[in-house]
Nucleic acid binder design. Sequence first.
DNA 1: GTCTATACGCAGATAGAC
DNA 2: GTCTATCTGCGTATAGAC
Lengths: 196, 196
Amino acid sequence: MSTRRGPGRPPGAAAPRREQLIEVTIELVGDQGYAAATLGRIAEAAGLSKASVLHHVPSVAELLAAAYEQVLASMVAEVGGAVEEAPAADRPVVYVTAMIGYFREHPRHTRVASEALVHLRLPGESRERWEPLAQLLEQARTARGLPPARELRTAALAIGGGIDAIVREQQLDPSYDSARAAELLAGVLENVVLSH
Amino acid sequence: MSTRRGPGRPPGAAAPRREQLIEVTIELVGDQGYAAATLGRIAEAAGLSKASVLHHVPSVAELLAAAYEQVLASMVAEVGGAVEEAPAADRPVVYVTAMIGYFREHPRHTRVASEALVHLRLPGESRERWEPLAQLLEQARTARGLPPARELRTAALAIGGGIDAIVREQQLDPSYDSARAAELLAGVLENVVLSH
DNA sequence: GTCTATACGCAGATAGAC
DNA sequence: GTCTATCTGCGTATAGAC
């Protein structure tokens, strides 16, 4: 009987219940913040008992981390894809607009990502959030024949902070046009960091 | 007997126990975050029982709000003072350097202020955090004989985000020179928002 | 896999003696 | 003003039946 069902899944397949739990956790955190993402509320939103939730997930903390990681992976995939399609000289600008665009298209992911630094115990990774952009800036400058920048870290940090602020404003006030803001920020980047 | 002690204090005087509790709360939040500022830990840090703490303060939530407000008031007093001493044309630049300088001099206040938006139920005030800077920008432009800016909100938002990022970096890595970063950010402000 | 029942800890807050 | 003792609620997690 080659079609009998065993206890396991085919190697690459997903665990559907776990996926569902991650999904409702993202909705809960995205809409009401990490403080609202308790075992009881997650169970209720998933239509399960608390014990059943913990049958599919080792702990609430692990589930919260998995939800955050899924949001982060989705963001990295989309932004990273857009960046790689562009020539090196334009990548910083694409990074800015793609990042702001991503969170405009995924409002729930905004809160998941922005509150994660406060609520989750994140290893040192969060401390170097400015590094990817710094690398893009440096590579764009060499692609343009410019000398290395002296204050790369501060430049990347400030641009990243500007992105965060624009994304947050779009979340607080959906009538705020973050696409236009992204163009503006990209223009500053172009004229200040990527010229002379 | 005009010197007898009654139950009250002279009108303008502080309530010393309450002040002490606010103080230890700021230390706790500043060093370990809002999650660590529980009634039990506050009591322990103050050398009191939990019940005694609540004799001087109506609730933990109120104490947390008071601690945040004290930090905010202190910051506004220092930054506001520096800004008012400067001519209108220079105020945005002074705002940036004074703000970053304040949090460099008061590391504990950094975390109290930055996590407050996530942990405290703040009324609409937090939504207009960009407005003071926007006003300074507008006034500086008219003082310089420039026409009103078109994207004031985004400019103030992005600068504010840059300030936040630099302040946070100084907190995470004390060897990071946020004073130099402030000069850089102020320079961008000068050349991008306050010229032509 | 799913449930009910339960254990356990910790948070905030109150009662009442001193 | 200060304390000890207590209450209540909520959070995570486990035990064990179905």
